[in-house]
Design a protein around this nucleic acid. Structure first.
Lengths: 348, 348
DNA sequence: TTTTAACACGAAAACGTTTTCGTAACTAAA
DNA sequence: TTTAGTTACGAAAACGTTTTCGTGTTAAAA
């Protein structure tokens, strides 16, 4: 007679339905049905099979399930960088929704490289995931080559962009209201009495930088302030950031308010201002853009525009799941805008 | 006659080998072989099939491949939290190695919950990944219940722990040399002239906190300094951190040097010291533990013990890949220790 | 002209599931 | 006693690959 213990010894690392079936002298179909409590199978057989399965800690193989069901319960993510507080927060937001609906996450990092992004897209869309969440690599935005995404869209593959999105295209996306953010940041500086505003921004292919500057210029114009061209610094991260920001203070006239389109630029600018012997916010007020950690720990603490990365991730996931479920229906792309708000601290 | 264009219209979203085979009037086996350039297939047939496949952008389905080859080329990761600079760096390190060897990443977040961790382990080990990289949840460490991992180890499932590892167990792991780190941090403070040292640490179930304190105490003893019990603050993050740190300054005697076992505690402590009207480092020197972002932007900047998260991720992945490849061979568990170093800034 | 070898391909099994369909055995109704 | 209806299970196909083995055709050697 075969005891459970002797079976234990014979059983290899991981049991599957076939093994259970042959050990119990039934067919795989019977086991499968029994484990799902199908009334096609007699009570006693069900009980026996379930007990056996539990004892050997049987768990269905997810690859086989995915192949069979034509769905993986996995969401793919492509981000430029993971060592970035904003993106971590987005991922956290994605995870909270995904986890709640029993989806797992497969994360690829493009390192802002076009080639890597293409590879990642190919990798993820060959059956591994049910849908894709993408924040586009800088290099891709520079090249303006979105062919790899267009293919997916043609194939009606569930795809949602977030934060860094392709321009002018009809796609599903979740973005920050960068224009309003830039506007509000600038307005905040103006309300604090600043008259000579500078902006630390990104090269023109980075959409978010451009939009924040648009808001900045809008406010400047609306409040009738002059715009000094040399107060418009576009930082190229390929070179030394500090040096580029220093340009701002090497002129005969210096600003009394600085709007930085991200936290790092703001923090570096603040250090430089202080090194110059000037006081923040008395001599120069500074406002940043992000919801990172740094702002809370600088001296003085940094006023910022909060981006709500977590919300962005959650919304993007909601939208993606919508796409996954009503895959058949024809629909027009949807854009969700996340609004920002000023978090006032000591630097303004 | 069937033209390529007319086929295009008929072709559904994603082509597979079967479709190619039937369109071209050959068998699936022939297609598969042709695509691998097998000399079993004639040159002309090969050329025809490859052209067709390329035109329709055929890519093999990875689920089917994984099922067939019994390997997924995916590494699973379970971490307590992703919005944490250290863990992001570890992931970045993992990714760099994994990517280089054509592995992808599947990331789960335990949120420091035991239950979630168990779910994540089950999810990932049902065929989805070839190996697992785990940093254990706080709750699991508290409960000291590692049954879910023991099962994997019995099954000889490739598994490597990093940073937060199960204590006393015979497992493969990569850890920071926390004792040496704590020792060196303390020694650094002593060399800077501090005599009354305080430590901001974690509850005793968090191994890393305990180890850093062990190093701290070792240095204290070695240099013959007194240890004031009320200078040993164990912070429980369930309550207000700031309030707990304040305890340190509410006594009649206050320390002249503080060792914080992480960056946040250090930064908060520094703020508090300054609020008290005291000077860092003149009145009180502070050293932190981490390689986060905050340290570089506080005023004064924070001296820290660098943890090299990226290196940790890379080493853990190296080890895991080793396990995956020599899965058969019996071997004894290996522990890799990452050494730390003092990064001196202005706070000491 | 027969045997051997090379060539070019197809059939089938396998990876681990689920589900549809078929059917043997038994029970209940006609 | 025949018919109809359950009950309880198994066979087989399907998801998309790869690979082993077999085989019909042709060309070269005997």
């Amino acid at each position: 007679m075969v005891t459970l213990e002797s079976l234990l010894d014979n059983m290899p690392k991981k049991v599957n339905i076939k093994m259970i079936a042959s050990e119990l002298g039934v067919s795989p179909s019977t086991v499968s049905k029994a484990l799902k409590d199908s009334h096609e199978i007699s009570k006693e057989t069900r009980k026996k099979i379930k007990a056996f399965a539990k004892f050997y800690n049987y768990k269905p193989n997810s690859l086989a399930l995915s192949l069979r069901n034509q769905k993986t319960m996995v969401i793919g993510i492509i981000i430029p960088d993971i060592v970035h507080h904003f993106f971590s927060r987005v991922i956290s937001g994605i995870e909270s929704i995904a986890n709640h609906k029993d989806y797992s996450l497969m994360i690829c990092i493009s390192k802002d490289s076009y080639e890597k992004e293409v590879q990642n897209v190919e990798m993820l869309t060959n059956g591994s995931v049910d849908g894709l969440l993408v924040s586009v690599a800088k290099e891709t935005l520079e090249k303006e080559n979105f062919e790899h995404f267009n293919q997916l869209i043609e194939q009606e593959f569930p795809l949602v962009f977030f934060d860094r999105v392709p321009p002018h295209s009809q796609v599903d996306k979740v973005i920050i209201d960068d224009i309003a953010g830039g506007y509000n940041a600038t307005k905040h500086l103006i309300e604090k009495g600043c008259k000579k505003l500078a902006i630390l921004t990104t090269p023109s292919h980075v959409t978010v930088g451009v939009k924040r500057e648009t808001g900045f210029l809008k406010a400047i114009e609306e409040f009738g302030l002059p715009m000094n061209a040399s107060f418009d610094i576009r930082i190229d991260e390929k070179f030394d950031i500090k040096k580029q920001i220093k340009e701002l203070f090497s002129q005969n006239e210096i600003p009394d308010g600085i709007f930085a389109v991200n936290e790092t630029y703001a923090a570096i600018a603040m250090k430089l201002v202080q090194e110059k012997g000037l006081h923040v916010p008395k001599d120069i007020a500074i406002i940043g853009f992000t919801d990172g950690l740094i702002s809370k720990f600088t001296s003085p603490t940094l006023t910022t525009i909060a981006q709500h990365g977590q919300t962005m991730g959650a919304k993007a996931t909601d939208l993606l799941l919508e796409l996954i479920f009503q895959k058949d229906k024809k629909r027009s792309p949807k854009t969700t805008v996340i609004s920002t708000n000023v978090v006032e601290r000591e630097s303004t």
